[in-house]
Amino acid sequence: MGKVLEVRWHARGGQGAKTAALMLAEAVAEMGKYVQGFPEYGPERMGAPIQAFNRISDEPIYIHSNVINPDIVMVLDPTLIGKANVTQGVPEDGIYIVNTTKTPAEVREMLGIKGGKIYTLDANQISLETIGRPIPNTPMMGAFVRATGIIPFDQFMAHMKELLAKKFKSKPEVIEGNLKAIERAYQEVKAE
């Protein structure tokens, strides 16, 4: 089995982490990679901490366990840092992508880690300005593509356009905003 890229999402119920994990899987699958996208289903309550997972590989993926040692951690809600063990099981060179107004250096201190790479973006503000509501999930995907370089950005946007058109058949007015949110996130994400 080849190298499998593993992703763990930390969010609160209602922020769209499950949707993002599944959409990311769909968009990445479009380019011929093997993917998994699945949430950890608990008692589904608005605001409760939740996790979702992705696996991405060039070869078929056999494993069906939850992701325990993620290469990439996506934090949709910065208030989870310190509460949801976002660093648990992450290797030294792990990548963190955090939705926050803070700088990568500040987040590094909050996480209490030395190695790895930290990306930050204000996904709430971006989604407010582009979609009109604070739903940080789609901008996080833009940051993911920037941080991993796993797929050329133009190609990713083309897939997302298709997927969003399918998902929002009944309210096409939100498609443009979501695409803009991904694009802004891709450009505005800061790294350290």
Partner: peptide
């Protein structure tokens, strides 16, 4: 098929 593990997971 396995509930959630297969039923609710995005797969190729």
């Amino acid at each position: 098929m396995d509930g959630f593990i297969t039923s609710h997971a995005m797969d190729v």
